[in-house]
Design a protein around this nucleic acid. Structure first.
Length: 371
RNA sequence: GUGGAUAUGGCCUAGUUGGUUAAGGCGCCAGAUUGUGGCUCUGGAGAUCAUGGGUUCGAAUCCCAUUAUCCACC
């Protein structure tokens, strides 16, 4: 088996746990936040910089790499790790999300999805088998089943049919996957915001059996209370000795609430995307660096942060970079935001260790301005 | 000095057979962003239409004068 997961400690007052996830490219301490590097790069960062920020694993994407530069080319390069010079663990998403979110013209059948490239309009076909074949070529430590992520809100009947098809596709993914010793294939729970469908999905995906389980179809625009409610219901049904991955979550509050409910892994484009658009997360809350009030502010982005950006640059300078559209602005903000979330997860792990996660959350929320 | 052209928010422009709250871009101000099509997207403020008269029910638009700028010629 490619991965080995061990729970090291469980919280006494919530479902949070600390764990250790061994992969072919190193050990990951959980709970972990995974930066996203869709097209084989965490935008604006070199892999060395991402590593030095403390990132333990990054995400990349099947759909995008299949279209460009092509999975065969990456295989020829020696796999994704070697191609992009990132030698820590990688997780690739199956491409399911992109097929459903990017493509206008798509046709879903039992066999798979016919879609048109967002780049040149060419027609392609992605199936469970094709997605696994691509992910095998890419060579990530953890790969994902090809699923359908339904939007929110969605009709019960549609979600039900979609969830059942995702389950059948999961079986096909498992049957097709070959190198289990080098790549762990995770199953994905669907079922939208309907508890009975979530329950059925968990049961069927567990029956198929995977070394790890993801909860998909959340953080798709529903209120945070609903996500929490779905997690409260879904997470406890997953086996304790397997990693649990909540897909697409990345704001501090969502991360806290997910970890408290037993989530071990999460990924999100949020920190890197908002960084490029001039928003940074700080211990005192969100800050839009373009705002005029920072024009003469020569303090750092976050007085409590010791990242590269905060130890070397001022708000006034970074604001200037954004106002004149200089690339360095996006880089400095990205460095800070990634460090902020990586540090946050480190603090969360420490808090779990010391059995004070709920207190830490309270303290963080007050300062950040959530409460 | 003579002749001609132009004058619209901070900047660049649209807008004439005269007709309701003068349009757009840039800039400015603010917001959004959650398994990444994103230097993206959404919203907001800001103009007595150079100035003064006149014609008209009604003028950025027509007429006169003034001022400024540009061009050509002496």
């Amino acid at each position: 088996m490619a991965i080995e997961f061990r729970v090291l400690k469980e919280s006494t007052d919530c479902s949070a746990r600390i764990g250790e996830l061994k992969t072919p490219h190193g050990v990951i301490e959980t709970p972990v936040f995974m930066p996203v590097g869709t097209k084989a790069t965490v935008k604006t960062m070199t892999p060395e910089e991402v590593r030095d920020l403390g990132a333990q694993i990054i995400l990349s994407n099947t759909y995008h790499l299949y279209l460009r530069p092509g999975h065969k080319l990456i295989e020829e390069a020696g796999g994704l790790h070697k191609f992009m010079n990132w030698h820590k663990p990688i997780l690739t998403d199956s491409g399911g999300f992109q097929v459903f979110s990017l493509s206008d013209l798509r046709k879903i059948t039992e066999d798979g999805v016919e879609f048109r490239s967002h780049i040149d309009g060419s027609t392609h076909f992605l199936s469970p088998e094709k997605s696994i074949e691509i992910q095998n070529s890419l060579g990530a430590d953890i790969i994902m089943c090809f699923d359908e992520c339904v939007p929110y809100p969605a009709e019960y009947e549609y979600v039900k049919k979609s969830m059942e098809r995702t389950t059948r596709w999961a079986k096909r993914c498992k049957d097709y996957h070959q190198n289990w010793d080098r790549q762990a294939l995770f199953g994905i729970i669907q079922g939208g915001m309907y508890k009975d469908l979530r329950e059925k999905s968990v049961k069927d995906i567990l029956d198929i059996g995977f070394p790890g389980y993801a909860i998909g179809g959340l953080s798709v625009g529903e209120p945070i209370d609903i996500m929490c409610d779905m997690l409260d219901f879904t997470a406890p049904m997953l086996p304790k000795d397997k990693p649990r991955y909540l897909m697409g979550v990345g704001s501090p509050d969502y991360l806290f609430e997910a970890v408290i409910r037993g989530i071990d892994m999460a990924d999100c484009v949020l920190p890197t995307r908002i960084a490029r658009n001039g928003t940074v997360m700080t211990s005192q809350g969100k800050l839009t660096i373009r705002n005029a009030k920072y024009k003469n502010d020569f303090s750092s982005l976050d007085p409590e942060c010791d990242c590269y950006t905060c130890t070397n640059y001022t708000r006034a300078y970074i604001r200037h970079l954004f106002n004149v559209n200089e690339i360095l602005g996006a880089r400095l903000a990205t460095i800070h935001n990634l460090y902020f979330l990586i540090k946050l997860m480190e603090n969360i792990r420490e808090a779990i260790k010391e059995d004070r996660l709920m207190e830490y959350r309270e303290e963080f929320y007050k300062k950040y301005g959530y409460i």
